[in-house]
Design a protein around this nucleic acid. Structure first.
Lengths: 315, 315
DNA sequence: AATTGCTGTGTTATCGGTAACAGGATAACA
DNA sequence: TGTTATCCTGTTACCGATAACACAGCAATT
């Protein structure tokens, strides 16, 4: 592997100049810069992350803290991880994965945290390096998330326009901002259309949504659409509607949320709101690196739109 | 953060001695070792991975190369990743994730490769650092995998003992060793019991197994068990049996394979062969690090037993 | 007592970068 | 022309570890 020194020799400059070309190009004459770039190209120079880390008193490591139990977690995270990892790679950063079981921090330049719940606030506040959250929150920490409210608003509108008479919202029974936002989007559009919201909150398991449909089957006239806060809930709803011999999508519609894997497990495939998880992962990585470079300066939030992906569960 | 030098001062030795205590303890007098250990404890010394990496001409990075498409992949990999990451952490190693899209290698000390197919042989042979495969193979590369043959043998035996008359094997139509091994385990036990194997190979998608059941429904008398090479296939089978009003588990049984997430999505839950993915991940990490320390010396293979996890799809 | 060998420890140089400082060249000004 | 400021580039020291070598102390050998 070529080093700074090799490049410097080839370009007939000192290695400090090469280092400057990389880190403070504005301090170097254009002429020299060209020479250096050329030498780097010819030698296929790749900076040594360890040396850089040592000199900068950095680690070139970002820790990803996953606070959710993975048994109950959707495949979801693989996409997030890929997004993060690919982006980190570009800056010679690498990733360390932490779960609740091994939070024995080693050392890192920053954190990305996901699956956070309210009670984790103290844990997160205790981290002494820049933090970016994946998932909206109200503690003022920078975050990346889907635009949950807008997402559900869009779905509600879609359902109404498809002519479903009654739109029932099945939310996730958890007191977290993302959940409230989704509900809010639904309510807003229902009000706009002069329809009465109808909301039930359930644990995020398909058996609960299935059980719910079973118990309340009598209540739901034909031409009802179940708008679910997760594909998992959607899955249970579809299962039980079929069990009850309801006809999908003519008499009953189902829309899920997330669009990661589970929507494709359902039969027919769920109409769902697909999140751009991989892009969001990349955004998390970029944001945390930026924060690292700016001594932890707040970066604000970033919301991603979801895409309504039509499956076989809506007209 | 305390450094080697800090520890050395505290223990009244040179930093070289401290380094030796860590890396070649047999070269240091017990007396001094005690002093050093004590100092390390008091200062809560953690070695600086970057410095170590630089001095050793290592990177302290292992790359995980995932060759499968993740859209079609089971959540599976999150568990693997956790296992790998936790283990690497212990040795101040971190992880970089590569997919087919970004194999532009940076630099690393070794590779763990998974989702490999035959045609990837050249790619893998081209890697210039120690490699461990997750998944059995015939190219002589060290690997970790479940004991696929034994796993299916165990399931077949179980099905027979539960009194299912006919055991139909639904394999994954792919010319890879893991697939052949699973089939082999089935055949072996069927022969042992004097039963005639009945094998179909399908693409690993639930809609194909569902379609298969639908088309062939007439052929399957009651008291048949479908032994599936994946939970995904199992899922489709369960779905279609219910569609045909077959009764599970009394008249028809289903056993899947993998035990990661999908088995719990089915209703009723699939009886499945649960793999110890996280442990296997840790084993991959250990093996690749060992290989790194032994200049790439071959490490052989390591097979993990699966656990038969009873769900509602067998008697 | 002198030589040899073995242990165990310290010294030095090095890994590949970067910050801080030093100093030469040129332009701007008195 | 001499002084000062500005711009660029090079030199030096250092980040925190490790390998290679040097060497002191002691036991075994002659």
């Amino acid at each position: 592997m070529a080093t700074l020194t090799d490049v410097a020799k080839k370009a007939n400059v000192s290695k400090m100049t090469v280092s400057r070309v990389i880190n403070h190009p504005e301090q170097v004459r254009d002429e020299l810069k060209e020479l250096v770039y050329e030498a780097m190209r010819e030698l296929n120079y790749r900076p040594n992350a360890a040396a850089k880390a040592l000199a900068n008193k950095r680690t070139q490591i970002i820790k990803l803290l996953i606070l959710e139990e993975m048994d109950t977690t959707e495949p979801y995270y693989m996409f997030l991880l890929t997004g993060i990892a690919n982006e980190l790679d570009k800056y010679a950063y690498s990733l360390q994965l932490l779960t609740r079981n091994n939070v024995q921090i080693g050392d890192s330049d920053g954190f990305i945290v996901c699956g956070m719940r309210r009670e984790d606030e103290t844990l997160i506040k205790s981290l002494d390096k820049p933090v970016v959250l994946f998932g909206q929150n109200e503690m003022g920490t920078d975050f990346i998330d889907s635009n949950n409210e807008e997402s559900m608003a869009k779905a509600t509108k879609y359902a109404i326009e498809k002519g479903y008479e009654k739109i029932v919202y099945l939310g996730i029974a958890i007191d977290e901002p993302f959940s409230h936002s989704r509900e809010k989007g639904y309510i807003k559009v229902m009000n706009d259309y002069g329809k009465k919201p109808c909301i039930y909150n359930l644990k995020n398991r398909s058996r609960y949504s299935a059980a719910f449909i079973k118990e309340n089957w009598g209540k739901f006239s034909e031409n009802t659409l179940f708008l679910c806060a997760s594909d998992r809930l959607g899955l249970g709803v579809v299962r039980e509607i079929k069990e009850q011999n309801g006809i999908i999508p003519e008499d009953y519609g189902v829309i899920g949320h997330d669009g990661v894997f589970l929507d494709q497990i359902a039969y027919p495939h769920l109409t769902t709101l697909k999140q751009s998880i991989t892009e969001m992962g990349a955004a998390c990585a970029r944001m945390v690196l930026k924060k690292v470079n700016e001594e932890g300066k707040a970066q604000g939030n970033q919301l991603f739109e979801t895409e309504l992906k039509r499956g076989g569960t809506t007209r």
